[in-house]
Design a protein around this nucleic acid. Structure first.
Lengths: 184, 184
DNA sequence: GGAAGTTGTTATTCACTGATAACTAAGCAC
DNA sequence: GTGCTTAGTTATCAGTGAATAACAACTTCC
C-alpha cells in the first residue's frame, strides 16, 4: 500500500503550495485557512498546528514565492545576465501566475504591522539581487521592476496569464506591446 | 444650532471618503463595514442601508478613486497634454496616497467575480483616457502605466507617501531615480 | 401643529473562521 | 508485539462581521 502519511516537512511544503493557490485568489484576509487545508486534503486545525497561525502561513507563502522568483532569476542570469534575460524569465513565470499574484497580495497587505517588514524585505531582496546579477543602473532596474509590477497586476486582474478573461480592446492594445507575455 | 443631519447624498459622499481611508488600509476583505462607519461617525447598519452591501460600497469607492484620477489627468492635460505632464500630476497624487492604494486593492481583488469586471473597466478607462489626452504610442503609455503601478505599489508598501517607514538602502536608491516622488 | 417622508439608531441574528483541546492511529525501534 | 514518537483527526469555542428588522427623531409642508 502506498504511504498514507507525509513527514511534517513534506506536508509543510505541500501546504505552502496549496497556500499559494488559495492566497493568490483571495488575498490574505480574503482566504480562510480551511480553503488552504481543503486544497491540500488535510484538516484545518492541522494547518494551524503546522504553521502556528494564519499570519505565519501567509508569511511562509510569500517568502516561498519570493525565493522562487529569485531562483528563476539566478538561473536566467547564468545564461544571460542582462535585464532582458531576467525579463524573459519573469514573463515565463506568468505560467505560474499564482506565484506572482501572491507576492502582489503580500505587497498590498503591507499596511498590516505583522506583515509589512517581511514584505518590504522580500521586495528589497529582489531589487538587490537584480542589481547584483545584472550590474544595471538604478534607473534601468527601476524600469525593470516597473514593468514587472505591471505584468503582475495585469495577472492579478485576470487580464494576463492562465484563465484570463475575454480581452477588451485596450487589453489587446496593451498586450501588443508586451511580446511573449501571452499565457497560452 | 448646527445642522445635525446630512442629506443622503452628502452622507453618501462622506462615506465614500471614509471608505477610501479604510479600504486603503485593509483591502476589500480585510476591512469591515463597521470600520468605515466609525470613521464617518455613523452606525454600521446605516452604511449597509445606504449602499446595499459591502461589495457595492467597495465598488462605489473604487469608482470614486478612478474618477478622481481621471479628473486629475484631465486637469493636468489642460496645461501640459504630455505623458510627462500627467506623470507629474500622478506623483502629486501620492499626497492622497489612499486614493491610489484603494485602486490597487481593487485590482488585487479582481479575482472576485463580483468585482472583476468593474475593476478591469476602471483600468481600461484610465488607459483609454491617457491615450486620448496625450496621443502617445501604445509603448509609451505602457511605460507610463508601468511606472504608475510601481509608484502605487510602493505607496501601498508604505515605502512612499505619507507615513512611510524608515527607508532601507534599496529604497533610497530606488527613490533617487524617482524625482519629486517624496511625499513630504 | 400634525402628517409624512427622510435620516438615523439599537437590537439581533446567523454564518463563518481562527484557534485550542482532546483524542486516534500510523510508523519505527528494539 | 509493545511502547514511544509523529502525523493526523473530530469536536468545540469564542469572537466577529454582514445584514435585517423594528423603532426613534429630525425636517418639511400644508
Amino acid at each position: 500500500m502506498v504511504r498514507t502519511r507525509l513527514t511534517a516537512q513534506e506536508r509543510h511544503a505541500q501546504l505552502v503550495d496549496a497556500a499559494v493557490t488559495a492566497f493568490a485568489q483571495g488575498g490574505y484576509a480574503g482566504t480562510t485557512t480551511d480553503q488552504v487545508a481543503r486544497i491540500a486534503g488535510v484538516s484545518q486545525p492541522y494547518v494551524i498546528r503546522l504553521f502556528g497561525s494564519k499570519q505565519d502561513l501567509f508569511l511562509a507563502t510569500v517568502r516561498h514565492a519570493g525565493d522562487r522568483v529569485q531562483q528563476i532569476w539566478r538561473d536566467a542570469a547564468a545564461e544571460d545576465p542582462t535585464l532582458d534575460g531576467l525579463g524573459r524569465a519573469y514573463k515565463q513565470l506568468l505560467t505560474e501566475r499564482d506565484l506572482l499574484v501572491v507576492l502582489l497580495h503580500g505587497f498590498a497587505a503591507a499596511a498590516d504591522p505583522g506583515l509589512g517588514d517581511a514584505v518590504r524585505q522580500c521586495y528589497g531582496d529582489q531589487f538587490t539581487l537584480v542589481r547584483e546579477l545584472t550590474g544595471a543602473s538604478a534607473e534601468e532596474v527601476r524600469d525593470f521592476f516597473a514593468h514587472g509590477m505591471l505584468i503582475t497586476v495585469l495577472g492579478a486582474m485576470r487580464v494576463l496569464g492562465p484563465d484570463a478573461v475575454e480581452p477588451q480592446p485596450w487589453v489587446t492594445e496593451l498586450l501588443s506591446t508586451l511580446p511573449s507575455a501571452g499565457g497560452e
